[in-house]
């Protein structure tokens, strides 16, 4: 951060619906165009080919949805953070909505380095797409989590690599529908020192337990990213952000939606995404 004073901002955004089929790189390009359309006072890198100073968090695999994506950007002058989310969202493809903007500490570490785990809701079916039997996922997950090693085969740079995903799993909670069938699970997966996709974890569980009919993801939604620090868990829009007074509007309803972060005492400018799980504070 050289030059004059900069105003770093952290944005939280969603990736929902059809747009989930675009890649992380495509999302980055869509943001670059949206920031230019909105003519934000962007800070640029030095050199022959100046790029806006935007840094993204962990990549979301293509095809997965999310209510908890983050990016940091640097501005050369202050902007109204209340109106910023709606303005940028207007210029983004439908399904990518900025749902929060917070002023960031100037020396905030990069998102990639500080996020320690991610939380997912995974809709699970059998390999042929049929629903799972009552209790099938619960017992399979219980069995799998007893195992010291959960190997899965991944394709990496054209080679097949066997990786143990057991160290990545922080917790898995199985959910049932009203009729008692196992339909989905919440996974919290560590990102440090390395991470795994929910699909890889599911494949490892299916293969280790040899569950008949197999397991397949029928929909994956990232609900949270967590920064574990001094025993507390924070969503990135509450970590390393500067205290400020603000009332974030619910983007869809236009009603005030003030949320107090109990850990930091600051108010986080976050609003709900349509149909998404609302942002929550970690405890």
């Amino acid at each position: 951060m050289k030059g004059g004073a900069l105003f770093p901002v952290r944005l939280r955004y969603t990736k929902r619906g059809k747009v989930r089929w675009i890649s992380h790189r495509d999302v980055a390009r869509a943001f670059e165009r949206a920031l230019r359309i909105e003519q934000l006072p962007l800070a640029f890198t030095e050199g022959f080919s100046p790029r806006p100073k935007v840094s993204f968090g962990l990549a979301l695999p293509t095809g997965y949805e999310s209510d908890a994506e983050y990016l940091d950007l640097e501005l050369v002058s202050e902007v109204d953070l209340d109106t910023l989310p709606a303005a940028i969202s207007d210029a983004l493809p439908s399904g990518i909505d900025v749902i929060g903007a917070s002023a960031l500490d100037e020396r905030a570490p990069a998102l990639m380095d500080v996020v320690t785990s991610t939380e997912w809701v995974v809709t699970v079916v059998a390999s042929d797409g049929s629903p799972l039997a009552r209790g099938a996922l619960t017992s399979t997950v219980d069995d799998a989590l007893q195992m010291p090693v959960l190997d899965t085969t991944r394709h990496r740079k054209g080679r097949e690599v066997v990786e143990d995903v057991r160290p990545v799993i922080s917790r898995i909670d199985v959910h049932r529908d009203v009729e008692g069938n196992d339909t989905s699970c919440t996974m919290e997966l560590r990102t440090q020192p390395r991470s795994a996709k929910p699909g890889d974890v599911l494949a490892a569980i299916a293969s280790a337990t040899a569950i008949s009919g197999g397991l397949a993801e029928a929909g994956v939604l990232r609900t949270h990213q967590w920064i574990e620090r001094d025993g507390a868990r924070l969503e990135p829009h509450c970590a390393d952000t500067r205290p400020r007074v603000l009332v974030a509007r619910d983007l869809n309803k236009g009603t005030p939606d003030v949320r107090r972060d109990h850990d930091t005492g600051t108010l986080a400018g976050v609003a709900h995404a349509a149909g998404g799980t609302g942002p929550e504070q970690g405890n």
Partner: peptide, 24 residues
């Protein structure tokens, strides 16, 4: 046909070719 096409997209290269949604 979207509900029938979407499940196929996880199996193909560059699924975003098929979603439309361009600005404009």
């Amino acid at each position: 046909l979207w509900p029938r096409i979407e499940p196929l997209l996880a199996r193909v290269e560059k699924p975003a070719r098929y979603i439309g949604m361009e600005r404009g």
